[in-house]
Simulated assay, not measured.
Amino acid sequence: MKRVLQPVNTEHFIKKGVLFMGFINILGVLIIAILAVSAIYTLVLGRQQKVVEGNLDTQIEKHVQKHAYIKNPIFLAYGIFFALLLFIVFFVAITFY
C-alpha cells in the first residue's frame, strides 16, 4: 500500500502568520508607548528631587505608606511584565494550537 502525499493547505498557515504579525506590531507600539511614558515620568521625578535640595530623609506620604506594595514601581513593573507574558503565551497557544 503506497502513501500518496496530499498538498498542504497553506491558506490556513498564511492567515495565522498574518494575525501573529499584526499582534507583534501592536505589541511593539505598546512597548514603545510604555517606554516613552516611563522616561517622561522619570524626568519629572528627577526634577522634583532636585527641588528638595538634598533632603533625603523626608517623611513618606500617608497614601504611600498605606499601599507600600501597590505604589512601588518595581512591583508594578513586575506585575505588568508577568501579565504581558501570560497574555503572549495564551495568544500563541490559542493561535497556533
Rank of each mutant, 00 (worst) to 15 (best):
D57C: 13
F75V: 02
I40L: 12
I60Q: 02
G22C: 04
L85T: 09
Q48R: 13
Y97P: 07
F75P: 00
I88T: 15
A83P: 01
I24A: 01
M1C: 11
I80C: 03
L5Q: 10
V52W: 01
V89I: 15
T10K: 13
I94M: 05
A39R: 03
I31E: 06
Y97C: 09
N25S: 15
V92L: 07
L30R: 10
G54H: 00
V4H: 08
F23N: 02
A83T: 10
V92S: 06
K62T: 11
G54V: 00
F96C: 05
L76W: 04
I24W: 02
V29L: 15
D57A: 12
I60P: 00
R47S: 08
T95L: 15
M21G: 07
Y78K: 08
I14N: 14
K16Y: 04
I94G: 05
S38N: 06
V37E: 07
Y41E: 13
A93T: 12
I70L: 13
R3S: 09
V44N: 03
T42H: 10
Y97A: 08
Y78L: 15
V52F: 01
K50I: 02
L56M: 14
L30Y: 07
K71L: 06
G22T: 05
F20E: 00
L19I: 12
D57R: 06
H63R: 13
V92N: 02
K15P: 01
F81H: 08
V44H: 02
K71P: 00
T10E: 14
F87R: 06
I32V: 08
I40F: 05
A93Y: 06
L19T: 13
I14Q: 14
V29Y: 09
R3K: 13
L35Q: 03
L86R: 05
V8I: 15
L86A: 12
T42N: 11
L84H: 05
I40P: 01
Q59K: 14
A83W: 05
D57E: 13
E11A: 11
L43E: 07
L56Q: 14
I40V: 15
A33E: 06
G54C: 00
I74F: 15
K15H: 13
L30M: 10
T10P: 05
H67A: 08
G22W: 02
L56Y: 08
H12I: 11
I80M: 06
I40M: 08
E11H: 11
L27E: 03
A93I: 08
T95I: 11
K2N: 12
F90Y: 15
L56W: 13
A93R: 12
Q65K: 07
P7R: 14
Y78H: 14
K71E: 11
Q6R: 09
P7I: 12
N25H: 12
Y78W: 14
K50T: 03
L86N: 07
Q6D: 06
N72H: 03
K66F: 08
F13L: 13
V18T: 10
K15C: 07
D57P: 02
R47P: 01
E61R: 12
L35C: 09
E61K: 14
T58Q: 12
L43P: 00
